[in-house]
Nucleic acid binder design. Structure first.
Lengths: 131, 131
DNA sequence: GAAAGTACGTACCTTGAGGTAACCAACGGA
DNA sequence: TCCGTTGGTTACCTCAAGGTACGTACTTTC
């Protein structure tokens, strides 16, 4: 078990292999379809809502807002409202957000660099590519 | 555009921010709900189907098989059948799989270690935790 | 001889992720 | 005066992710 309180002491860390561990939730926010891309985009620099929307191809405003809310709730992203004529909102990574984003950017970068090799392997193998 | 063939030259790498880039598919296999956990589990050592099933809390046999098929198709996981009485099947990371898994393990490990801090931040903030 | 373990495949059904579209409020510009 | 921009929210609907359950084929164990 993980992060047990019942025994009187907090676990020092989580265990993603445990179904009930709250780390599962955090992991799913971070590795969600749009969560990864938001973190990767904000890993480059601070961005406004519209900029994020344009940067991440295919996101709807709804999902972008929802993803940002989840990441903000976990303390990875900070939301700043610039009180201007049409109020502009800026998003940047927090200190902890910067650390997760570093891992995410590393993963994403690896995939981008090795994409040709992966694609080649796909066609070579007779295995079915589902999902 | 990414991995363009129409112009006569293969792009050297993908771009996850492009909706049509095939890296999106690979990324979603790797960061899928069970994909992350399978890679993390196999990052520790080679495992049989049943062992994976027991290790990863909450997976159904169906999803485990499906996830393994997708990861095998991308060339991250190698399937080995041991021709025994009830044929046993073993799964291990390929060389490229080992590299992605390293990133995934790093990310997962970071989350596990920082879980208490994240949970504390969640409660401190008034933001709504959705999804 | 019945039950259980191993490694799935498949049919069926539910849930929720996620898309579309409309609406809002405030302001600047034509 | 009406339109467009910014950053959303909300309602509605669809489709696929994913769970449950059962079948299979062969073997060991009780």
């Amino acid at each position: 078990m993980s992060t047990e309180v019942s025994s009187g002491l907090q676990a020092l860390q989580g265990d993603v292999f445990d179904v009930n561990c709250p780390s599962r939730g955090v992991l799913e926010h971070v590795t969600s379809r749009w969560g990864v891309l938001v973190l990767a985009a904000l890993g480059e620099r601070e961005l406004r809502f519209g900029e994020l929307h344009r940067r991440i191809g295919g996101v709807s405003q709804k999902m972008l807002a929802q993803t940002l809310r989840a990441l903000a709730a976990d303390g990875f992203v900070e939301r700043t409202v610039i009180p201007a004529a049409p109020p502009r909102v800026s998003y940047r990574l927090t200190e902890t957000g910067d650390q997760v984003a570093a891992h995410v950017v590393g993963l994403v970068g690896w995939i981008e660099r090795h994409l040709p090799a992966i694609l080649a392997a796909r066609e070579a193998e007779p295995a079915a590519a589902a999902s």
